[in-house]
């Protein structure tokens, strides 16, 4: 057992962990932070993506001991009260269906937009290729990311680009 300390979603935890324990299992089984799901065992799907020191990392590809001393943000700690613009955009643009890939997809997006605040569609598609979704065909995810990027840049969304939830005509001016 090895003593590790990490700050997860604003709370410091100290635990004795097996050196082989994956961070993702530590988060889920050790700390009860089950908002981070596991979708594969080969680091392909990205469902378990978290932010470590602000960088997106697949938490199945990191040992808990490697995260000693780190500050980790999971989907459960991304926002406090008001949703993060990326969370809002995913709902607004129907960028999720079953939602299993969504925590990873959102956190990977947060990192993507930090590094590239004005991505093109092509850059979004390539920037998220480490996160697999089986439901959406990605088109609405791409739309959500572009829309969140615009909002985070402080720009008005392009006219006609949103179909507002409460707009019966389906398109707002």
């Amino acid at each position: 057992m090895t003593r590790v300390s990490m700050k997860v979603d604003g709370v410091v935890y100290e635990d004795d962990v097996e050196p082989r324990r994956l961070l993702t299992h530590h988060l889920r089984d050790g700390l009860g932070r089950v908002g981070t799901p596991i979708g594969c065992d080969t680091s392909n799907c990205g469902a378990c993506t978290v932010l470590i020191g602000g960088e997106s990392v697949k938490s199945c590809s990191v040992l808990a001991v490697q995260a000693d001393g780190e500050e980790i943000t999971t989907i459960q700690g991304l926002s406090d009260g008001d949703w993060h613009p990326v969370q809002k955009a995913f709902q607004q643009h129907h960028g999720l269906q079953c939602g299993y890939c969504t925590p990873g997809m959102i956190l990977a997006t947060v990192d993507l937009l930090k590094n590239n605040p004005s991505p093109t569609e092509e850059e979004v598609r390539h920037g998220l290729e480490g996160n697999l979704c089986r439901c959406t065909g990605y088109q609405n995810i791409v739309k959500a990311v572009l829309s969140a990027a615009a909002e985070m840049r402080g720009e008005q969304p392009h006219p006609g680009s949103f179909r507002d939830a409460d707009d019966k005509t389906g398109v707002s001016a």
Binding site: Q91, L96, G99, P103, A165, V171
Partner: peptide
């Protein structure tokens, strides 16, 4: 998507999903 909804006003309407709140915040019960 531009056409008017029919029936009592709810059918054909692009409602955002009730399901999403828990899914985008990680409060899901897998």
């Amino acid at each position: 998507a531009l056409s008017a909804p029919y029936g009592g006003g709810e059918l054909g309407r692009g409602r955002r999903r009730k399901e999403d709140a828990k899914l985008v915040t990680g409060q899901t019960n897998w």
